[in-house]
C-alpha cells in the first residue's frame, strides 16, 4: 500500500481504514486487500453488504417493489446481472433452509469476517433498520459457512 509506505517514509498520518464494497455477491476484497487489512490494521468498512438490497431477496422472481432503489433508479445495474440473480437465489434459499432470513445471513457473513472493522448498513424505513441492526450478534454455523463457500465457488463475485 503506497499510502502507508509514503506515510512511514515522510512521517505523515497512516490510513486507518478502507471503505470498499463487500458482500456475498462481491468478495473481491479477499483477493488482494484482506491480507493488507489484517497485517497493516487497515480494517474494511464494508459498503453495500446487501448489494443494494438485492440480497434481502426483495427483487427475487423479477419483483420490483415500489420505493425500492433498483425500481426507482435503473442506472444501478452493478448488482443486477443474470449471474448475480442466480447467485442471489442460491443464497436466499440457503438462508431460508437454515432458519434465517436472507438479510440476516448476508449481514452476519460480512460482520463476522475477521478483516472487517464495521459493516455499513443502510435503510429507507425503521423496519429495515431494525432488521439490519438485530443481525449484529448472529454467528453463522460452520455448515452454513461451507454452503456459502460452495455457492461462491460456483458463482464467484457476480457483482464486483
Amino acid at each position: 500500500m503506497r499510502f502507508l509506505e509514503v506515510a512511514r517514509h515522510a512521517q505523515l498520518p497512516l490510513v486507518q481504514s478502507i471503505q470498499n464494497p463487500y458482500s456475498l455477491l462481491n468478495r473481491t476484497f479477499e483477493i488482494g486487500l484482506a491480507e493488507i487489512a489484517h497485517r497493516e490494521r487497515v480494517g474494511l468498512l464494508a459498503y453495500s453488504p446487501l448489494a443494494f438490497g438485492v440480497l434481502t431477496g426483495k427483487y427475487r422472481h423479477n419483483q420490483r417493489p415500489s420505493n425500492a432503489r433498483l425500481t426507482l433508479f435503473t442506472r444501478f445495474s452493478r448488482y443486477n446481472n443474470p449471474e448475480a440473480i442466480a447467485a442471489t437465489e442460491a443464497y436466499c434459499a440457503l438462508a431460508e433452509q437454515s432458519g434465517m432470513t436472507p438479510t440476516e445471513m448476508a449481514l452476519a457473513f460480512v460482520t463476522t469476517r475477521p478483516f472487517v472493522t464495521s459493516n455499513i448498513i443502510g435503510a429507507t424505513s425503521l423496519q429495515q433498520l431494525a432488521e439490519n441492526i438485530q443481525t449484529h450478534s448472529r454467528v453463522l454455523p460452520e455448515s452454513v459457512l461451507s454452503e456459502i463457500e460452495a455457492i461462491h465457488q460456483r458463482q464467484p463475485n457476480p457483482a464486483p
Binding site: 503506497r2 478502507i18 471503505q19 470498499n20 486487500l33 493488507i36
Partner: peptide, 11 residues
C-alpha cells in the same frame, strides 16, 4: 483519522 475508499492494493 484518515481512511481510503474504493481503493486497490496498490493504493
Amino acid at each position: 483519522a484518515i481512511g481510503l475508499s474504493n481503493e486497490t492494493p496498490w493504493g
